[in-house]
Amino acid sequence: MPKIVDHDQYRRTLLSQCFDLFADHGYASLTTRQIAKALGVSTGTLYYYFPSKEDLFMQLIEELTEQDLLRATAKIEGLSTLRERILALGDFLEANEDYFIKQTLLMMDFYQQAGVGQSRVNEAVQRVSERSRDEIMAVLQLENPLVATHILCLIDGLIAERMVNPAMVSYRQQAELLADLLTAYLERPKGEAR
């Protein structure tokens, strides 16, 4: 009897093994053949699931983002105040800092290869960004997508700053400051200038 393969699960299994591979070697320096060898599969199998290295990488980023959002949401859900939710988000980032630094460096490497201009605009990365913004709006109970985008930019900047100067920047302090700023912003009278 032929073996029944759950292709979606197998694809996810391959993806789960790729993050450390890309993080250790960089996007640019890995070939599809090297990836297949490290995963213990043929290049034909790899191409069956991922038509190109870029497609594999984009599926990896989408899968990682989905898992990251599920893990972060689990830490934040059930907390009643905006302050508690923001502090929990800061704690989540701090607890997973090494992972997020690797992810940030990997994205930088990918974009360095893409170059400047329209070629660097990638639909998968845009979907990930929009999904992250929407999840921030949901878990922090925000109505304004610009505020959620601002928080994403702050997170990206915070991770980058922690890479170069970890002693100067604290996740907890930045989360407390963000909570203070957002609370003041969201509680101001409706007619007050934005």
Rank of each mutant, 00 (worst) to 15 (best):
Ile76Ser: 00
Phe100Arg: 05
Asp109Leu: 00
Leu39Ile: 10
Met108Thr: 05
Glu94Cys: 06
Tyr27Ala: 08
Leu87Ile: 08
Arg133His: 06
Pro189Ile: 02
Leu177Ala: 14
Leu56Asp: 03
Leu146His: 13
Ser132Ile: 03
Leu93Cys: 09
Tyr10Asp: 12
Leu56Ala: 07
Ala179Ile: 07
Leu142Phe: 09
Asn122Phe: 06
Arg83Cys: 03
Lys75Arg: 14
Ile35Leu: 04
Ala175Asn: 02
Ser42Trp: 01
Leu154Phe: 10
Glu84Leu: 03
Asn144Leu: 00
Leu105Glu: 02
Gln126Phe: 12
Leu69Trp: 08
Met1Gly: 15
Ala114His: 07
Arg194Gly: 03
Gly90Phe: 00
Pro166Gly: 12
Met107Glu: 11
Leu106Ala: 05
Gly26Ser: 12
Thr81Val: 00
Glu97Arg: 06
Glu84Ile: 01
Gln67Glu: 14
Leu181Ala: 15
Thr81Glu: 02
Leu152Gln: 14
Ser52Lys: 00
Tyr171Ser: 07
Glu77Ser: 11
Asp8Val: 15
Ala72Tyr: 05
Val5Glu: 11
Tyr48Ser: 13
Ala167Ile: 14
Gly117Lys: 08
Gly78Leu: 04
Val169Lys: 05
Glu77Thr: 06
Leu140Asn: 12
Glu77Ala: 11
Ala74Ser: 10
Ala23Tyr: 00
Thr32His: 00
His7Pro: 09
Arg194Leu: 14
Met108Gly: 03
Glu143His: 10
Leu30Pro: 13
Asn165Met: 14
Ile35Tyr: 02
Leu178Phe: 07
Leu105Thr: 04
Gln126Asn: 14
Pro166Ala: 10
Ile76Gly: 05
Leu152Glu: 12
Val128Trp: 09
Ala38Met: 06
Leu181Asp: 12
Asp20Gly: 02
Thr45Met: 07
Gly40Asn: 02
Ala167Tyr: 14
Arg194Met: 11
Val147Phe: 02
Val5Asp: 11
Leu70Ala: 14
Asn96Ala: 09
